[in-house]
């Protein structure tokens, strides 16, 4: 079979997982992470190819995608902004931070991206409560304590 989404690189990494983990079902979530970090969305064609490649029923993969928050959401953007909304960040002003993000990126939080660059998501605790309101852009974590519009603009400009 020809794979359009599972690139050579991703398949190599999946092979490595298949060789290390005792059972192949354990590879599903790890493989979905590889797909997520490349495409930031997991859609049916991705799942079909994965199902075919590691020989696991499609329904099992779909069940996992729909259970775990990181895979479930349709984002349609190259970069994924995660703003924590839990208590420590809430009392330290995550709502203002969120508004700032919405203003600077011209996107609405938790809505599919219009411009294809950023998707803003309010998430549960990301484990950085001492720098609340904490936020992540893709894999990077940032300190939100002294954030200003200028600083945030500078950070955002790194993600094209």
């Amino acid at each position: 079979m020809q794979y359009t989404y599972l690139t050579e690189d991703i398949r190599q990494k999946i092979d490595k997982y298949l060789n290390t983990f005792p059972v192949k079902e354990q590879v599903i979530i790890q493989a979905l992470h590889l797909i997520y970090s490349k495409y930031r969305d997991i859609e049916l064609p991705h799942m079909e190819e994965l199902s075919n490649y590691i020989q696991v029923p499609l329904n099992q993969i779909e069940g996992i995608v729909h259970f775990y928050d990181m895979f479930r959401v349709k984002r349609n953007a190259r970069h994924h902004i995660r703003v924590c909304k839990n208590l420590p960040c809430h009392i330290m002003g995550c709502k203002k931070l969120l508004e700032l993000f919405e203003k600077l990126t011209n996107e609405k939080a938790n809505e599919e991206s219009k411009h294809g660059r950023f998707y803003i998501e309010t998430v549960e605790c990301i484990g950085a409560c001492s720098v609340a309101p904490a936020f992540m852009i893709d894999d990077d974590l940032y300190d939100g304590t002294k954030i200003t519009e200028e600083k945030l603009n500078e950070i955002l400009s790194k993600y094209t």
Binding site: N86, L87, E124, C125, G127, A128, C129
Partner: peptide, 10 residues
């Protein structure tokens, strides 16, 4: 560790 307010293991 995903409990709100917990970031010690990290």
């Amino acid at each position: 560790e995903s409990e709100p307010g917990t970031f010690k293991d990290r």
